[in-house]
Design a binder for these strands. Structure first.
Length: 558
RNA sequence: GCCCUUGUAGUUCAAUGGAUAGAACGAGGCUCUUCUAAGGCCUUGAUGUAGGUUCGAUUCCUACCAAGGGCACCA
């Protein structure tokens, strides 16, 4: 529609470029563009006089200062409702049609707790993956995990010192949480106690060389059980990964690549470094030197990332884009690594995209798993789900259904609180206020959906069928918003920003609830009832698709 | 010190260079013998500072101030 009107204006007024937009305030029409104030009235009249296919779609054309405003007609809106009901692909676009894209996100480390930051990365990554899918891409979900290193040694030290935490019974949830506690114990000891530090470094070597049977057996159990606990969590969150990459597997590969490219990497103070600042260009972010191989001949995270990226392209040689989602603390680091990769493999140039998001922070300051002042993802989710359970406990549903709804609503509350704002900003975490069930919240969206479904159920009982044809000339705000869904999705994928969709869903939920409050939808006496039912159907379709893009379930009841 | 992000109601967030800067929470008032009150309706309040570009700047540019993150053998 946007392009139709645009081209029409171009043709009639003989203008080269028209910037057609939605007025901020919906009262000012559905589309608008700017002209010089002197000609506004004359141009508007020319457009009004012009004959064309658009006659029926445009209700009126008005001038306000330098704006020419277009008001779409009831006929257009009835047509758009029909389109939403009939077109299964409504909301899809072709921006990434046929492209193969790998999206890496979440990246929790075995032996460490799954903390709130992982929850944030997972939520954003899953949403971005889904938005890419609806834009035509074939998406591969990837998870990259640190299976060796000091953090593992810390956890194993904690386990060795606290035999009760090695209890290999019960759900892997409980076992994993014991290992998380062991990690916190080991991390604390590493900082405070020089003896423990020595011991942990020793354990680290033994893990690396697999030279100690006792440690090996603890390692194998701990790895398995923490990975399984993550898997339970992904299920709850609605993520399914296609590929798992382990640090230990990509490290050697990265080492090889660095050693083969002597022209790009150089020796400095016994280490192998990449002096990225030599490639600095004007108007581009400044790069700096980073160590790729330590003087001990060990690969750093940089080298592993290099190996990981090349490994991804090896697995998917025809991959068009490799997306990585992390917190913004890795921004500068990733820029340097990306530059190195582009120099070594010019064919990968512009095929990498790093999406960074802000951090979860307490009112009091940063949280870190090393200090132990963390909120684990599990704790947050469980507390939130418990709050929902309390709300539904008196509902006339069976227990399994109550549990399912509580989970879907709890997860939605958390995911929405992450996705409602643009990804760059930090999120101030406060359990009391940030996880909301009312107003601007995930459960509000789900509630609006469930309510609409309930209305439709009643319509079926009363035998009122949806009918997108109507003679009514009244236009509701909800109609003015629903047809814009595909535009919003496109903007979301262009900018890798799910929050445009979140904000849009709030708008349609609000206008649907308002419509619901001011009109009786199911009413045999009203000849518009069929149209109202069609409109309600259209709302549920768009809401469900939109919630899916955020990684949120749409319960039929709540 | 250098680099990267970000500064909007009391608070948490919106606003593809456009119109009267939107919500939510909070506070106050109204609303379930009509389809789900996790709802609806009404009232209240903000662009860090100083310049610049533009017909027009929350948005772009420069400086300053403030917050967060990052800068060599951690991940």
């Amino acid at each position: 529609m946007q392009n139709k009107i645009k081209n029409w204006i171009k043709e009639i007024l003989d203008i080269k470029d028209v910037v057609l937009m939605h007025p901020k305030d919906i009262k000012n029409g559905d589309y608008a563009f700017v002209v010089s104030p002197e000609n506004a009235e004359k141009d508007a009249e020319t457009l009004r006089q012009a004959q064309g296919d658009l006659r029926e779609q445009i209700g009126k054309i008005e001038v306000a200062g330098r704006f020419i405003n277009f008001y779409l007609s009831p006929k257009f809106f009835h047509g758009s409702v029909e389109e939403i009901l009939n077109n299964k692909n409504f909301g899809k676009n072709n921006l990434y049609l046929g492209k193969k894209i790998m999206v890496e996100y979440t990246d929790p480390n075995p032996f460490k707790p799954f903390h709130i930051g992982h929850l944030m990365t997972n939520t954003i990554g899953e949403s971005v993956a889904r938005i890419l899918e609806v834009s035509g891409a074939e998406v591969f979900r990837a998870n990259y995990q640190g299976d060796v290193g000091l953090h593992v040694a810390r956890a194993i030290y904690g386990l060795l010192k606290n035999e009760n935490l090695q209890e290999q019974v019960g759900s892997h949830d409980v076992q994993a949480s014991n290992i998380g506690n062991a990690y916190v114990f080991g991390a604390g000891a590493y900082e405070d106690n020089p003896e423990a530090k020595k011991e942990i470094d020793e354990i680290n070597k033994k893990i690396y060389h697999r030279s100690d049977d006792k440690i090996n057996s603890i390692y194998d159990w701990g790895f398995k059980v923490t990975m399984e606990a993550f898997e339970d969590f992904y299920k709850l969150l609605g993520t399914k990964f296609d590929y798992y990459f382990l640090e230990s597997k990509v490290a050697d590969f990265g080492l090889e690549i660095v050693k083969e490219n002597k022209k790009i990497f150089q020796e400095s103070e016994g280490a192998i470094v990449f002096k990225a600042e030599e490639y600095n260009k004007e108007n581009q972010p400044k790069l700096h030197t980073r160590v790729f191989i330590t003087s001990q001949d060990l690969p750093t995270y940089e080298t592993k990332e290099l190996g990981l990226t090349v490994e991804k392209f090896k697995i998917k040689p025809d991959m068009n884009l490799s997306v990585v989602v992390t917190a913004n603390e890795q921004l500068d680091y990733m820029r340097v690594v990306t530059k190195a990769i582009y120099l070594i493999y010019p064919e990968y140039t512009d095929k990498m995209k790093h999406i960074t998001h802000g951090m979860m922070r307490f009112a009091t300051g940063k949280m870190g798993s090393r200090k132990g002042n963390i909120v684990t993802g599990e704790l947050l989710i469980n507390d939130t789900i418990a709050l929902v359970s309390e709300k539904v406990k008196d509902r006339d549903w069976d227990e399994d259904f109550k549990k399912k709804i509580s989970q879907q609503v709890g997860v939605s509350a958390i995911k929405y609180s992450i996705l409602k704002q643009s990804t760059v900003g930090d999120i101030a975490y406060d359990f009391e206020t940030s996880i909301s069930f009312e107003g601007d919240s995930g459960p509000y969206l789900q509630y609006s959906y469930a309510r609409a479904r309930s209305v439709l159920e009643r319509a079926t009982k009363e035998n009122i069928l949806p009918d997108p044809h109507s003679d009514s000339t009244e236009i509701f705000e909800i109609e003015k918003l629903l047809y814009r869904f595909p535009e919003v999705v496109e903007r979301g994928v262009r900018e890798y920003e799910p929050h445009y969709i979140a904000n849009y869903l709030i708008e349609i939920a609000r206008s649907f609830n308002s419509f619901y409050g001011n009109n009786v939808i199911v009413n045999k006496e009203d000849k518009n009832s069929g149209y109202f039912v069609a409109l309600t159907f259209a709302f549920t379709f768009v809401m469900k698709k939109g919630l899916h893009l955020l990684g949120i379930e749409s319960p039929e009841k709540m």
